[in-house]
Design a protein around this nucleic acid. Structure first.
Lengths: 346, 346
DNA sequence: CTGAAAGCGCTTACAG
DNA sequence: CTGAAAGCGCTTACAG
């Protein structure tokens, strides 16, 4: 009688009985069909609210052939901060829907990936967000085979001609960083990039080259170094750059984590940042603001990338079309304290 | 004929036809029931492998009244690195099962939390991992009402007497950090803790007090400072400590992020780490190794916390009992370069 | 506008 | 040991 939220959820049949209608009618109300009298609709809605009725997902899913769930799959090498920021964005886009995200990271595990590919036919996945995948990724191929829509965030390599993706404007970011250093008066600007195979590396480097070219500064191959996305290798590469006959006065670095390795190398050699060396990173990790000196960097809009990718996916799931296959989100410059004009030679 | 993985997944009825048995028999094989002849079992298994048969989740879920899914719910204020490390642990524990994790973070959003509580009766959630919850959390109460099992990771406050939780040994970690500083010869050891309301703060502080007491060092209330878990406030508090008539020679800090604020304050005052001030953090974030000087810290086993919590949850879901209600995982000392014996006074 | 009926793909007593 | 049948909670033609 006064049991607004009973322990055992009501079934639709029970709810129908309470409202004095048939299950078909309840279903129509819930599915917003037009062929229900206004008065009936209201009665059903009142009953639903009073009883705290919630639709059983499994039943709907079985009947509709849709699970109302999407998978979130990250390449295993991805750092946790990255992954969760993107995931927050996914969740944000899902806030106004009834779609849920299932985490299905592959854990660098072949077997697991195999399992996941199989599971794809269990009907629990309507679509997927893939982080760091390319057209050679097995699960991406499987999604294609099964005609399950997906969007790739920050593709790790080439995609198929019809595959959707969302990434940062790596090219523009590279150009922006380099222009900024040029604007401060630097002419010998080095880069220490991340994994050479990752497209973001190629793109940022292209932006760097273009900026130099636009400023009529010759590109010196000796100033272009590749590493991975971690501190160690960046540290080595910075030491290498400092040992050059004519060392740079500024470095554009592949990501913020690498900047910590660069800072260390400079500290070891007694070179002050930003007075004797300007450093600019990429990402804008939470600690970038708090390292000393505070790191000037290019912001990578991770949360937004997740959000936009998910909105695209939702459109696909609704059978709508998506205008832009490849979306790139802006990468603004975050000016802090690690860049300054080059020192005048004494 | 030679179609080992058709686009449209087979139904069990189709598979049964291929194998020349009834659906009931196929189901029995899949559910590992004993009452199937060995030869029949093998025939069915062969057919499943050949056809790449995968069970439909919705159908099983509807029939069994279990979804095979758990929810992962994080307090909105949680930093992304934390959250995903725990989530990786969850996933690791799920690797050998068919259970999937659904992300259901509440996003600091009242409405969303309300929605989530409702959804709890849609049958899609068999259990939950809650990060940073306490007995006042609405969803925790809802889980209890519905008798849906859950485990809390890093509880934010008190829990009910029967609620399960997994956390780090904050108390032992606090003692370990303090003992380490004592062993280096420090006697004026300050603490800059995180949120005073968080249990981990209380526990670490208790460990600190005990260590001092064990070493017969008087606790000086002026050396105990509270902040939040970020750089800014820690920076302020460090400046405050430095302005004391008799400043500390070492600080034990609430987490690594705060340490960056502390480093900054010390840098601003020209105080060298570790020569003139020892700093020890908590967490062991990825950057701890690469800040300069490399940060000595107490490791918080986030991934393991997620893994252990999930294993406990899986036991509950299997109807087994769990011996230990409150699990605490070890917090080892990671020695790096930010601590040293105190300077001799000139 | 309303509702009886079939059926989504499974599992589980139950009869044989 | 095997399988026919009922039913989990919904949605959707379809008849009225």
């Amino acid at each position: 009688m006064m049991n607004p939220s009973p322990k055992a959820p009501l079934t639709m049949a029970q709810l129908a009985a309470v409202a004095g209608v048939s299950v078909a009618t309840v279903s129509k109300v819930i599915n917003q069909r037009a062929d229900v009298a206004q008065a009936t609709r209201e009665r059903v809605e009142r009953a639903m609210a009073e009883q705290g009725y919630v639709l059983n997902r499994a039943a709907r899913s079985l009947r509709k052939g849709r699970s109302g769930q999407i998978d979130f799959l990250v390449g295993p090498e991805l750092n946790s901060y990255y992954a969760f920021e993107i995931l927050r964005g996914v969740e944000e886009a899902l806030l106004s829907t009834e779609v849920r995200v299932v985490l299905a990271s592959t854990h660098a595990n072949r077997e697991r990936e195999q399992l996941w590919r199989q599971q794809l036919s269990d009907g629990a996945t309507d679509g997927a967000i893939l982080v760091l995948a390319d057209k050679h990724s097995l699960y991406l191929q499987e999604l294609n085979r099964r005609h399950i829509p997906f969007v790739v965030v920050d593709p790790f390599g080439e995609l198929g001609p019809d595959d959707l993706s969302v990434s940062a404007t790596n090219w523009a970011g590279g150009r922006l960083a380099t222009r900024y250093l040029l604007s401060l008066g630097h002419r010998r600007i080095a880069v220490i990039m991340g994994e050479p195979s990752h497209p973001c590396t190629q793109d940022r480097l292209a932006g760097y080259r273009l900026a130099l070219q636009e400023a009529s500064v010759a590109v010196d191959p000796a100033l272009i170094r590749f590493a991975d996305f971690h501190g160690e290798r960046a540290h080595q590469e910075m030491l290498h750059l400092l040992a050059l006959p004519e060392p740079p006065t500024a470095v554009f670095v592949g990501n913020d984590e690498q900047c910590l390795g660069v800072y260390r190398a400079l500290h070891e050699r007694g070179i002050a940042v930003p007075d004797a060396m300007s450093v600019i990173g990429f990402d804008n990790m939470p600690y970038a603001e708090w390292v000393t000196p505070a790191l000037t960097t290019i912001r990578q809009p991770l949360l937004e990338m997740g959000r936009v990718a998910t909105k695209m996916l939702l459109r696909l799931l609704d059978g709508e079309s998506v205008e832009t296959l490849r979306v790139e989100l802006a990468t603004p410059l975050i000016e802090r304290a690690s860049c300054a004009p080059p020192q005048k030679h004494p």
